[in-house]
C-alpha cells in the first residue's frame, strides 16, 4: 500500500506538471515567510517543540548535530564576498531564516526511501510514516535543506522525565530510536480541521487551521494555508509576489518583486515561499 501510494503520487505529480499544474491535488499546503518581518526570536521553534513532541537531546548530542528542532532559525552574518570582510562591524544586523521541511512537491527524500516510508500525500504534503521507517537515513542524506532529523536514541526514555511526559501531545506519536522525523506542517491540526469540515459537509476554510509556528509568530511573518484555495491568504501572497510552483526559476513580470523559494533551481518544488529580507543601505 505504501509503495503504491508512493508511485501513485509521483505519477499524479508528473501528470500534473504536463498539464500545467497540480490541478488534481485536493490541497497543496504551503507557506509564505516574510524575512522582512522575521525577527529571529525563536518563538516558532519552541511552539513546534510544544506541539510536536520534539525531544530535547542534551548538550552532548546537540554538539554532534543531533538536535531535533523541526523548525530552526538559522542566523547568517553578512558575507565576506559582499565586502563585509572589510567592514569592522555587522552594520546591517543578522540574517534570520526559519527553516522547516519545505514540503517539496518533487521531494528528493521520497524516491530514495527503500521502504516507501516517506511519500507524497494527496494534500501535497511530504509524509513520514514512522512505523514504516527502518532508519536507513537515505532521505536525510538526500535532503538539500538538511531538515530531516534522526532518532539516534530512544529519547522518550530521557527527554520527558515525569511529569514532563504529561505535556506530550496525544495527537501524534513519540518517535522511537531508529526513526526519521521532520516537520509535518502540523498534520494533526490539518486532520482535525478536515474532519470537522467533513462532518459539517463543507470545504476547509482558510484560517480555521494553522501550524503552531504561524500561530505564535509575534510579527506574523509566517503565513500558512492551502495553495489550491484561491482565496487563502497564502495563495494570494504567492500570487501577489508572482511566485509559482512548477518551475526551477521564477519569471516575474516585475523583476524586482520579492519572493523566492530556497534552492528552487534544484527542482525540488518547495512549497515554502520566502519574501526577501529588506535593509536600508
Amino acid at each position: 500500500m505504501s509503495l503504491s501510494n508512493l508511485l501513485n503520487d509521483w505519477t499524479r505529480y508528473r501528470q500534473g506538471i504536463e498539464e500545467g499544474g497540480f490541478h488534481d491535488y485536493e490541497h497543496i499546503f504551503g507557506m509564505a515567510i516574510d524575512l522582512n518581518k522575521c525577527i529571529g526570536c525563536n518563538a516558532c521553534s519552541i511552539a513546534c517543540y510544544a506541539e510536536n513532541n520534539l525531544a530535547v537531546v542534551g548538550e552532548e548530542k546537540f554538539a554532534k548535530d543531533q538536535g531535533m528542532h523541526w523548525l530552526r532559525i538559522e542566523r547568517y552574518w553578512d558575507e565576506p564576498d559582499l565586502g563585509a570582510d572589510d567592514q569592522e562591524f555587522q552594520e546591517h544586523g543578522a540574517s534570520f531564516l526559519p527553516m522547516m521541511c519545505q514540503q517539496c512537491n518533487a521531494a528528493t527524500c521520497e524516491p530514495v526511501c527503500p521502504v516507501a516510508a516517506t511519500y507524497h500525500t494527496p494534500d501535497g504534503l511530504n509524509a513520514q510514516v514512522y512505523n514504516r521507517c527502518i532508519g536507513s537515513r537515505y532521505c536525510s542524506n538526500n535532503c538539500p535543506y538538511r531538515l530531516r532529523y534522526f532518532n539516534f536514541y530512544s529519547y522518550y526514555e530521557t527527554s520527558w522525565p515525569a511529569p514532563l511526559d504529561q505535556q506530550l501531545n496525544p495527537d501524534l506519536s513519540v518517535r522511537d530510536k531508529g526513526v526519521m522525523e521532520k516537520c509535518t506542517f502540523c498534520i494533526q491540526r490539518i486532520r482535525v480541521a478536515k474532519d470537522t469540515a467533513q462532518r459539517e459537509e463543507r470545504e476547509l476554510v482558510d484560517g480555521e487551521f494553522t501550524t503552531a509556528c504561524a500561530q505564535t509568530c509575534p510579527t506574523s511573518a509566517i503565513q500558512f494555508g492551502d495553495l489550491q484555495d484561491p482565496n487563502s491568504k497564502v495563495s494570494q501572497l504567492w500570487k501577489q509576489y508572482q511566485v509559482k510552483l512548477g518551475t526551477t526559476e521564477q519569471s516575474k513580470q516585475n523583476k524586482e518583486l520579492r519572493g523566492y523559494r530556497v534552492f528552487e533551481s534544484l527542482n525540488t518544488e518547495p512549497c515554502v515561499m520566502y519574501l526577501d529580507r529588506v535593509r536600508e543601505v
Binding site: S2, N5, Y119, A127, Y130, L172, S173
Partner: peptide, 18 residues
C-alpha cells in the same frame, strides 16, 4: 486494511498513521 479495501476506505498512509 482489508476492511478499508473492501469498503472503499482511504488508503493514504497519513489518514491512519500519525
Amino acid at each position: 486494511v482489508r476492511c478499508h479495501e473492501a469498503n472503499g476506505g482511504p488508503s493514504d498512509c497519513w489518514k491512519c498513521h500519525k
